[in-house]
Amino acid sequence: MIGQTVNLEAAVASFYQPLYRFAYSLTRNEAEALDLTQQTFLILTQHADQIRAQEKLKSWLFTTLRREFLRIARRQSSYPEVEFHAGQHDAPSAERAGDTAADAHTILEALDQVEEVYRVALKLFYLGELSYREIADTLEVPVGTVMSRLSRGKEQLRAKLASLETGVDPKIITMPQRKRRSHE
């Protein structure tokens, strides 16, 4: 136990895979996803006392991971680094394991094409396996907003997937959105 309510071992066992998947969907880079996942658990050990109830742990972990991702993204946009890119090197494991894994790759591509405002809710839902309440906690938005984002996001995802699989550009009519910041 590292805090009053947090058992790190149990937290790792329960959440390392969905956290890694979510991280991978954000970074599309295995090494960076590993770093983000580890960093998230490291922060957990530093701030475990902030978690007042065990049922909030999952949302807290995803919130932390996303904040770390945004922090790193901001820093990298200020200090760009030369990285070794997948295009030049081995493809990530998700892209290497045949048709079903290629399907995962297509889905990630389609998710990345969904409007930003819906995208992160969908990623938390599908990759993080979060409930709508946990997504609301993570994004700090009302439950109704999450439902609406999931509903519209899924419509877009369906259309984008069909487009990627058939090569036909979907015509999606969406409600006008207010301008949002550029990171997820």
Partner: peptide, 23 residues
């Protein structure tokens, strides 16, 4: 979608490292 994304898996060594950290 769930079935497909389940195939994105963290290396098993990640869990070992994190668990070792906890121990």
């Amino acid at each position: 979608i769930f079935q497909a994304v389940q195939r994105i898996e963290a290396p098993t060594s990640l869990k070992e490292v994190l668990t070792a950290a906890g121990q």
